[in-house]
Design a binder for these strands. Sequence first.
DNA 1: TGCATCTTTAGAAATATTCTAAACTACTTG
DNA 2: CAAGTAGTTTAGAATATTTCTAAAGATGCA
Lengths: 141, 141
Amino acid sequence: MALHMSSANPSPDFAERLREAGLRPTRQRVALARVLFEGDHRHVTAESLHAEVKATKIPVSLATVYNALNQFRDAGLLREVVVAPGRSYFDTNIGHHHHFFVETDNELHDFPSHDVTVEGVPAPPAGTQVSRVDVIVRVRR
Amino acid sequence: MALHMSSANPSPDFAERLREAGLRPTRQRVALARVLFEGDHRHVTAESLHAEVKATKIPVSLATVYNALNQFRDAGLLREVVVAPGRSYFDTNIGHHHHFFVETDNELHDFPSHDVTVEGVPAPPAGTQVSRVDVIVRVRR
DNA sequence: TGCATCTTTAGAAATATTCTAAACTACTTG
DNA sequence: CAAGTAGTTTAGAATATTTCTAAAGATGCA
């Protein structure tokens, strides 16, 4: 019974969701998916996710966390956000949205893009097509 | 009359410009400044800049390149652009502008922001103020 | 010139991520 | 459901980028 209506994910059947994404639902991947996709949207780094999953007593190596994050991203389950040099964030919100980045404490916040318009962007370089437009609003405390 | 109106720098007196920025015009910093600020705007990484300056026969260590890039950025002479995980780009264009990032070959292109409008961004998180709005248009070949 | 301060440097260290090859596990087939 | 195989996980090594350290060197002021 879904307690969290604002949850990122209606179905808690993580094994099935992994299978649909073309990934074998191993113990590690299911544990990672549970932490990532249960409850509201979130932002993690490889390190922070590793720490969280280890706390659930399921053995996972850091290498597996990196593997899984890359696979989840490639499968469209996560979005990678690059805002700070030397570290990648992964966002469980894969819908259209943009980010506030609090530079003073390396904190990331989503905001919906449906009200945002970006106008006046010139034509992309010859031979290329736009894959995404990111708006990053950098703020400080 | 200046032939290169689009040039990044009117004056080629790099020592003086460093002094104005509060930096001692050492041999290494002047050599780096020459490569960076002579001619049109450009994008470099620490590695690429190191390779270029070494080619001018002036001895510079990679550590000094990192130091100088950080100092130039802090002094407002450069802008750091974070678009790809694991590497920083530095942009000699410090005016208002945004970027195309060609993901397929890690290439960065500026475009002026004076025609660009970003509307509908919500209020920033409480207690913060906006330091900059970056628009990154990601494209692929 | 003399000297205090700032800068550079090589190499070590820190940080983040990927790779390797061996052990392990999920899924399929018989 | 035993066995095979193909995909996964893992520890540890390797790679990549950036920063740190402490010693040597350069700069600019008196």
